[in-house]
Design a protein around this nucleic acid. Sequence first.
DNA 1: CGAGATTGCGTTACTTTATAACGTGTGCAA
DNA 2: TTGCACACGTTATAAAGTAACGCAATCTCG
Lengths: 136, 136
Amino acid sequence: MNEHVHASADLTKNQALVMGALTRSDSPLSAYTILDQLRDDGFRAPLQVYRALDKLVEFGMVHRLESLNAFVACRHPRCDDHETVVFMICETCSRVQELSDDVLANRVAFLADEARFALKNTTVELRGICRSCQAA
Amino acid sequence: MNEHVHASADLTKNQALVMGALTRSDSPLSAYTILDQLRDDGFRAPLQVYRALDKLVEFGMVHRLESLNAFVACRHPRCDDHETVVFMICETCSRVQELSDDVLANRVAFLADEARFALKNTTVELRGICRSCQAA
DNA sequence: CGAGATTGCGTTACTTTATAACGTGTGCAA
DNA sequence: TTGCACACGTTATAAAGTAACGCAATCTCG
Ligand SMILES: [Zn+2]
Ligand SMILES: [Zn+2]
Ligand SMILES: [Zn+2]
Ligand SMILES: [Zn+2]
């Protein structure tokens, strides 16, 4: 059983609405942008969004981009290994590519180990220009 | 000439004050904490802090921790290679260890290259418990 | 030298991001 | 049925960051 796979049925109404907004978007959304998009669905206050986001992040269905204060739906090709994920954030089109890499993950684990650092969570965010934006 | 080494003489008064506050601290400081610490030195508004921080980050003397919305003085053992730096952030004592690692940096560069992503900036932040806090 | 540009600085007001605190309703289990 | 867990709604507030204005000191180059 894969712990971070949740059918829509598992989600509450608010969680499903927030998840829907993120899934529809092809770039990260701030909590307040989500709030604005969901006004017609009855959303009124930031907490409604933040509470749903907290759960979705906990489920592994959404990632928070620390350097952007924004959120993306998980687009992992394979849904395992959410330990060490790399985000490539395009500063031109603001689209985000998500990937996981064992070599990188292992190196991070090694460095932590070497420093006797009990690793709980890894953030890797790359800023730059994506392939298609370079063409232009 | 090493571009990010700046003698105190190079800094303006405000930059020196902010740098001093960060250097004295053994953990990251938010801009507003710095502001409070510098009230007696004449600081009144957030912008005074942010403007100094912008420059210090540009000089490479200060790093921004994205996952903390906070800032640390650079404590690089060797002052080169500010391209890819790893921060280990202790969630217990909130101290931060900074290190650079060529293997990790190369892997990041490789992944970016492979995706034809023009890499400008890399953020790697590890959350966990530091060595000395585990002992306790 | 002096006109124009650049840079740092100070202040007010403001925007964006995130939480605290309190109360409601629903389902479920002892 | 009573107690608990949990999602939800609302108001207010905290924390982080920026826009816009103007002033003064320092380059810089004709
Ligand atoms: Zn993912
Ligand atoms: Zn792009
Ligand atoms: Zn450094
Ligand atoms: Zn610690």
